[in-house]
Structures are given as structure tokens and as C-alpha cells.
């Protein structure tokens, strides 16, 4: 139980080349244990989204390495990475990224469809998750007809559909009003607390960051020097 579930070691990411070369991450190391809630904070362009993408195997680093459950992620095949994102991770983004033309249920069932879960079971499990997020009655509605808060809850339901062990959330409340933001945040921490799902969260909101077990601050692609929380969890 003591080994970190998710580990970043000296991560580097470079965009562009020549004069446009931009080092988004300049050697970031951090780790999280199962059930942690980790807030990554920093200004726009500090590299926090890049860090989240690398941790969630959405992108590959140019230097350093990411380990999940001790396994180096960067040496995995694309297929294994796809599988890991599908089965182990859940993602929630600021812009929801829903299929507007599909129903709420279909959106939630999408990761299960990719995992080849049979249609009937897909429906049952999706309804179960929607019920938990208070959206069961909207299941057959088009995703495009929902309000922002509802959409983000649908996105969360989708992230939960395959029973992930880590949820990565990039500004999950960024596009929501205060009330809806609070509901979504409550749900995220409830999942973290009750289901033991590890939460890695990017946020501008100091409130949200404060509710996390740990916070790291990124400044210009590096962990802020005054941040002792980076590798040592403070509980």
C-alpha cells in the first residue's frame, strides 16, 4: 500500500522547435498514492495541463518518465496505453467534450462500448451511474439539450462508467456557475472519499484546491520551490 500509485519523475515537455521552442515542463517530479486527492495549481500557461496530460497518458513526455502501479507508462505500447486510459482512468475536462448528437446514456456508455461491454449491461451500469449523479431521468435526452452543470455531471458519469481507479479533472468547475461548480466538486470529493478513487485535479479555485489532500503549484514548468507537498503527502 505504501508504493505510489502514480509517479512522475523529472518530466519534460517541449513544444515547437527553433525560435518557437517552448519548454512547457522543465523536470517535474511528484507522486500520488491510491486514494490521494492531489490539486495542481498554477497560472495559465504554467504547464499544469501539460502535466495532467502526461500523468493521464494522453500525451508522451520528451524526458523523464511516468509510472502507474510501478509500470513505466512511456514504454507501453499505444494499445496498452489505450487500454489503461479506458479501464483505469477517468477524465473530466473543462469543456465537457460530450457527443452532442448522442443521448446522455450513450455518452455515459461510450467507454464501456469501447471496452466491449455487452449492450444490456452497458445500459444498466450507465443508468446506475446516472442515478448516482442525479441524472437518471435525463438518460434518453440529447446531450446538447442539457445545461452546463448537467453536462459536466454527464461527463463525470462517463468518467466513472468503467469504474476507474484514478480520475483526472482539468478545471472541472471552470465553465460552471458557483452552484453547479459546488455540486460537481462535492461529487468528485465524494468519489474520492467513499470509493477510494484517486483524484488528480487542476483548478484555479483556491477553495477547490484547499479541499484536496495535497496541493502542488507549477510555476513556469517547474514545481514551486516553496512546495514541500510535491512528493511528501501531508495529511
Amino acid at each position: 500500500m505504501n508504493a505510489p500509485q502514480l509517479e512522475a519523475e523529472d518530466l519534460e515537455k517541449v513544444y515547437g522547435s527553433g525560435e518557437n521552442r517552448f519548454r512547457a515542463l522543465k523536470g517535474v517530479s511528484l507522486s500520488a498514492r491510491t486514494g490521494d486527492s492531489l490539486a495542481i495549481v498554477g497560472r495559465s500557461g504554467s504547464g499544469k495541463s501539460t502535466l495532467l496530460h502526461l500523468l493521464g497518458a494522453l500525451d508522451r513526455p520528451d524526458g523523464g518518465r511516468v509510472r502507474y502501479e510501478g509500470e513505466p507508462v512511456d514504454t507501453m505500447s499505444t494499445r496498452d496505453q489505450d487500454r489503461m486510459r479506458n479501464r483505469e482512468f477517468g477524465f473530466v475536462f473543462q469543456q465537457f467534450h460530450l457527443e452532442e448528437r448522442a443521448s446522455v446514456l450513450e455518452n455515459v456508455a461510450l467507454p464501456m462500448m469501447i471496452a466491449k461491454v455487452p449492450a444490456k449491461e452497458r445500459r444498466e451500469r450507465a443508468l446506475e451511474v446516472l442515478d448516482r449523479l442525479g441524472l437518471a431521468d435525463r438518460a434518453d435526452e440529447n446531450a446538447a439539450n442539457l445545461s452546463g452543470g448537467q453536462r459536466q455531471r454527464v461527463a463525470m458519469a462517463r468518467a466513472l462508467a468503467n469504474r476507474p481507479r484514478v480520475i483526472f479533472a482539468d478545471e472541472p468547475t471552470g465553465a460552471l456557475d458557483v452552484e453547479n461548480g459546488a455540486t460537481v466538486a462535492d461529487l468528485l470529493f465524494e468519489l474520492n472519499r467513499d470509493d477510494g478513487i484517486t483524484l488528480v485535479l487542476i483548478t484555479h479555485s483556491t477553495d477547490l484546491a484547499r479541499r484536496c489532500g495535497r496541493r502542488v503549484t507549477i510555476v513556469d514548468g517547474e514545481l514551486a520551490p516553496d512546495d514541500p507537498a510535491a512528493t511528501e503527502p501531508v495529511r
Partner: peptide, 15 residues
């Protein structure tokens, strides 16, 4: 956007 999202959710290149 859609295809990228499908990939993020774990859909393989072959699919």
C-alpha cells in the same frame, strides 16, 4: 475533437 476524445477514452487506433 470527437475522434481525439474517443482516443482519450481508450478507443484503439484500429477501431
Amino acid at each position: 475533437r470527437q475522434i481525439g476524445m474517443f482516443r482519450a477514452l481508450g478507443m484503439g487506433r484500429r477501431r
